[in-house]
Design a protein around this nucleic acid. Structure first.
Length: 473
RNA sequence: CGGGGAGUAGCGCAGCCUGGCAGCGCACCUGCUUUGGGAGCAGGAGGUCGGGGGUUCAAAUCCCCCCUCCCCGACCA
């Protein structure tokens, strides 16, 4: 009964490990059309947890949900020059409908700024209507040249928020509020993934935005992943869609807008930020199943006892599940739950029964402790709390260890082989960014020297900014 | 689209060079024994060998064309 490895090891072949774990943990499969993805029930249950956590934060920011059409008139996209230029190569365009050639092709939304603005201009009349806030949960399509499950798929799931405000500063404030109170809070406190927040460089900015704010994290292979973005759109879309309002003095003004999104890519972040050679490690606050109860051997009523323990844990408010299988070897069952990353495992066998105990195993550390069944929920809860904190601490430490300050572009390129590099923007410059791009390295974000967010206009040769550069997914 | 690798059972692969009954491991089904870290034995089912064309008595194998997937780039959440 020697243990065989189920997954490729991360150190040997990280991309293979990623594919292995998606399959073995039953998260997703490739769809039949290149770049499409089937999200399996276990994977989807995790996504639903992400949705629930994000949605609650979005609502707390005062943004209600709505739904806009999948199909957008092609002409809408073409109105905003930078926007259409940014998206045209990745659009899916429908030319036929009902068996006939369409007069005007419709595009499958790559994002919904245009169609939402068409309705904002209809609904917004007065400063009294502002701020106008909308979020939608939807699928979008961007024809990808190089798809990867969750990280970059042709069709993906996301939420996209769209807001309109009376002033630029109010719009900026809102974009940053979403960045911090929705994205950063969720990513750090629920996903247990430490992130850097900052501003995108001009070439990394969203097509049609004036400023893009981003959340970037380091994966276990040292590469960066953009986990969410919040954009200031200025009046770009308002002008082309004529989204105006009458201000208090009766003057007609264009609204100032934001848009912001986080996608099913977060699933990839979860896998690559915490997963180890034994499978996923899901942070307890996110986990759809927080604790699984296993019957080691169904003797002396162990099966019944395990069911009772599961009920006990559920009643205590823990997301619990009983694995009552007895036709599969114990080792197999353990490996299954490790692959799925369930944070805590409770093992009940004849040995513990007599003593009124159970074995509690933490997935993140592998730590095993024997605890009394009476009050088990307290021990489980504290194990979950510790695991949540440990995953965040581990990820933070990895990022710290793999981030180096450099003072030349060549050093930045070298450091990007294993992690992040920070370099003064003044030293990097536009040419340095080009040079790094050629080597497959991008500027992930810009911050002030102390790591705080720069102003949206804090730019130019005088700005004392720091660039964080890395290879990215 | 450029460079590299690979398509053979659900998954992982051998067979191809040198043409001659389509195989192995895991998974699956049945039975028995098992169950404290991927159980054992016995029996069984499962294949247009990515697709099309060609050469040949005979093609997974040789030739031509096409398609798909993976890795590294260019586009991007």
């Amino acid at each position: 009964m020697a243990r065989k490895s189920v997954l490729a090891s991360q150190a040997t072949d990280f991309p293979q490990w990623y594919q292995d774990v998606l399959a073995k943990a039953e998260l997703a499969d490739n769809g039949p059309v290149r770049g499409t993805m089937v999200i399996r029930p276990y994977g989807y249950s995790i996504w639903e947890r992400m949705q629930a956590e994000l949605d609650a934060r979005i609502k707390a920011a005062g943004v209600p949900n709505a739904y806009f059409p999948l199909f957008i008139p092609e002409s809408y996209l073409k109105r905003e020059a930078a926007h259409v230029e940014g998206f045209s190569p990745e659009l899916a365009v429908v030319t036929h409908g009902g068996g006939k050639l369409l007069d005007e092709p419709v595009v499958v939304r790559p994002t919904s700024e245009t169609i939402i603005n068409a309705y904002f201009s209809k609904w917004i009349q007065s400063y009294r209507d502002l701020p106008f806030l909308i979020n939608q949960w939807a699928n979008v399509v961007r024809w990808e040249l190089r798809p990867r499950l969750f990280l970059r798929t042709t069709e993906f799931l996301w939420q996209e928020g769209h807001t309109a405000h009376t002033t630029e500063s109010e719009a900026r404030e809102f974009a940053l509020q979403i960045l911090h109170d929705v994205y950063e809070d969720f990513m750090v406190n629920v996903l247990a993934v430490p992130i850097l927040t900052g501003r995108k460089t001009e070439r990394e900015r969203f097509s049609g935005a004036t400023t893009t704010w981003t959340c970037e994290a380091m994966m276990r292979d040292g590469k960066a992943l953009q986990m969410g973005t919040s954009h200031e759109l200025g009046q770009n879309f308002a002008r082309v869609f004529n989204t105006t309002f009458l201000d208090e003095s009766g003057k007609e003004e264009h609204v100032w807008q934001t848009s912001w999104g986080a996608s099913s890519r977060l699933m990839g972040a979860l896998v690559m930020a915490h997963g180890d050679d034994n499978g996923l490690r899901i942070p307890p606050l996110l986990a759809p199943v927080q604790v699984v109860v296993l019957v080691v051997r169904d003797e002396d009523g162990a099966g019944d006892k395990a069911a009772a323990i599961t009920a006990q844990l559920s009643e205590a408010g823990l997301r619990s599940q009983l694995d009552g299988r007895t036709d599969t070897s114990f080792g197999r069952r353990v490996v299954d739950w490790e692959l799925k990353g369930v944070p805590v495992r409770v093992e009940v066998g004849p040995r513990e029964l007599n003593a009124g105990e159970a074995v509690l195993v933490r997935r993140d550390s592998g730590t095993k402790t024997t605890v009394p069944v009476a009050g088990l929920e307290v021990a489980v809860r504290s194990a979950l709390d510790e695991a949540q904190a440990a995953l965040l601490a581990e990820a933070l430490e990895r990022r710290r260890a793999r981030t180096v300050e450099v003072s030349t572009v060549a050093e930045a390129e070298e450091a990007s082989r294993t992690g992040f590099a920070t370099i003064a923007l003044r030293v990097l410059g536009n040419d340095g960014e080009t040079q790094l791009n050629r080597a497959g390295v991008t500027v992930r974000l810009l911050t002030r020297l102390d790591g705080s967010l720069p102003g949206a206009d804090e730019d130019g040769p005088d700005a004392e900014l720091l660039a964080v550069v890395a290879r990215a997914y």
